[in-house]
Simulated scan of single mutants.
Amino acid sequence: MDRLDRDILGILQGDARISYRDLGARVGLSANAAADRVRRMLRDGVIRGFTTLVDPAADGRPGLVVFIDVTLRLDKKGEDFEKAVLKLPGITEVVHVTGEHDYLVRARAADPAALDALLRMLKRDAGVAQSNTRIALRAARG
C-alpha cells in the first residue's frame, strides 16, 4: 500500500458510496485508476466489504440491540467459538478483543425472553464461560 491507497481508504471510510470519478478527482487519479485501486484492495483483502449501518430504532423492527462481552471456557478455541456463534440467531457481529474479555458480540433479540435464550445458547453451544450484556438505548451517528 502506498500513500494513494491510504488516501483512498480514508475517503472510502468517510463515504463508501462516493463515485470513482469523485474519488479519483480527490486523490489526483482518473476514475478508472481509482476503480482499479479499489478493486485491487478488495481482491487483496485490504477492503473486506462495504456495509450499511442502520439505526436499530429507524429500521422499523422491534427488539433489542445488545452488546455481549464474552469470556470463553478454557477448553474452547477462538476459531471454534467464532464458527459456532455465527450460526446462532440474531448475531450480527463478533469481534476478538483485548482486555478482560475474549470477544465482543453484537446481537439483536426480539425481547428479553429471546435475549435470555440467546445467552443460554452461547453458554451451551458456543463455549462461553462468562458473559456481561449491555442493551443499546440509542445510537448517535456523525
Score class of each variant (00 low, 15 high):
A58T: 02
R73C: 03
P89H: 09
R61H: 06
F81D: 04
L72Y: 10
K87C: 00
G90H: 03
T98L: 08
K76H: 08
R48T: 13
R48W: 07
A84P: 06
L72G: 06
A58S: 11
T92I: 02
L72W: 03
V65Y: 06
V97Y: 00
G90E: 06
K77D: 10
V54Y: 07
T52H: 12
D75S: 14
I91Q: 07
D80H: 08
V54P: 00
E93S: 10
G60R: 13
D55V: 09
V65W: 03
T52E: 14
D80C: 04
D80P: 00
D59M: 14
A84L: 07
E93T: 08
V97E: 02
L86C: 05
P89N: 08
D80W: 07
F50H: 04
F67G: 00
A84K: 12
L86W: 11
T98F: 03
G49Y: 04
V66M: 12
K83Y: 15
V66D: 00
D80E: 12
P62A: 15
K83T: 15
A58F: 08
R61S: 04
K76Q: 14
G49M: 05
K87E: 14
V70Y: 05
P56V: 04
L53Y: 03
G60E: 13
T92Y: 09
K83L: 15
D59Q: 13
F81E: 00
L64I: 03
K87M: 05
L74K: 12
R48A: 13
A58H: 08
T98H: 03
V94R: 09
L64R: 01
K76L: 12
L88N: 06
D69I: 01
R48I: 06
I91C: 06
G60F: 15
L86M: 13
V94I: 07
F67W: 04
R73D: 10
T92R: 07
K77T: 05
V66C: 13
L53Q: 06
D80K: 01
V65Q: 11
T51A: 15
K83F: 09
T51L: 13
E93Y: 10
F81G: 02
F81L: 07
T71M: 08
K87A: 10
T52F: 14
G78L: 10
T71N: 10
R48K: 14
E79S: 14
T52N: 07
V94M: 07
L86Q: 13
H96P: 04
D59L: 13
R73F: 05
R48G: 08
E82D: 11
G49I: 04
K77Y: 10
